[in-house]
């Protein structure tokens, strides 16, 4: 099924554009703008968190101690690796290596899925320890300042939930791209799509780093 169409021969240009160059540039620019809005979406919650982190420093630091640093770090490692595989996929697709691209995409998807799994396990863990102040579930906090700790866990679930949602969207996106790659109809177009999704995936990576540092690392 691999085609021999060379990459420099651009695919079809959408009707509103003059040439493929304009189209590619517009798409990339659009994605960057979109990511900046995403950053601000998280930014609102980050800002709130930081305010309370300062006000209730001690309580938040202690509450952070109840998160599983091991699993969090493992997840960070997984996600960074998936960033690498995604970057490789971008390289490979540019060299029209269909099979290798596909492998890298699948690896990225797998790593992302494991991330979600671990995250789910962590949540379950917190649920079992009554650290999930959601939907009226009991909140039993063993340390000092249980109220502020509850606030901390509220943020924890909001932030990880929001990030998890973005991961799911990313996984969906990558799955579609993987299918397109498997079919290999219009390689230049696929290359562009891989590039755009790569941008998104990298962004979700970076977000996680921030979430991770704010929630897990600022502990006592």
């Amino acid at each position: 099924m691999p085609t021999t169409q060379p990459l420099n021969e651009a695919g079809q240009v959408a009707e509103q554009f003059n040439d493929i160059d304009q189209q590619v540039q517009s798409n990339l620019f659009g994605m960057w703008l979109f990511l900046s809005t995403e950053l601000l979406l998280f930014g609102g919650v980050f800002a709130g968190f930081i305010v309370f982190r300062v006000i209730h420093g001690e309580a938040f630091a202690a509450a952070a101690g109840h998160l599983d640093l091991m699993l969090g770090s493992l997840n960070t490692a997984l996600l960074l690796t998936s960033g690498l595989t995604m970057a490789l996929a971008e390289q490979l697709v540019n060299n029209t290596r269909r099979r290798a691209t596909l492998v890298m995409l699948l690896a990225t998807i797998a790593l992302g899925a494991i991330f979600i799994g671990i995250k789910g396990y962590e949540w379950y863990h917190e649920y079992e320890h009554h650290l999930m102040p959601v939907l009226g579930l009991p909140f039993e906090y063993p340390g000092e300042h249980p109220q502020q700790a509850e606030l901390f866990f509220n943020f924890y679930f909001t932030l990880t939930g929001l990030h998890g949602f973005h991961m799911l969207v990313g996984l969906g996106l990558l799955s579609v791209i993987a299918i397109l790659t498997w079919r290999w109809r219009d390689p230049p177009r696929i290359a562009r799509q891989v590039q755009i999704s790569g941008l998104y995936w990298a962004f979700v990576d970076v977000l996680w780093i921030v979430v991770f540092s704010l929630l897990y690392l600022l502990r006592s």
């Binding site: 209730h56 309580a59 000092e144 300042h145 249980p146 109220q147 502020q148």
Partner: peptide
Amino acid sequence: QKHVVAGFDP
């Protein structure tokens, strides 16, 4: 729990 006096349990 916001301000615990030194030497006492919360």
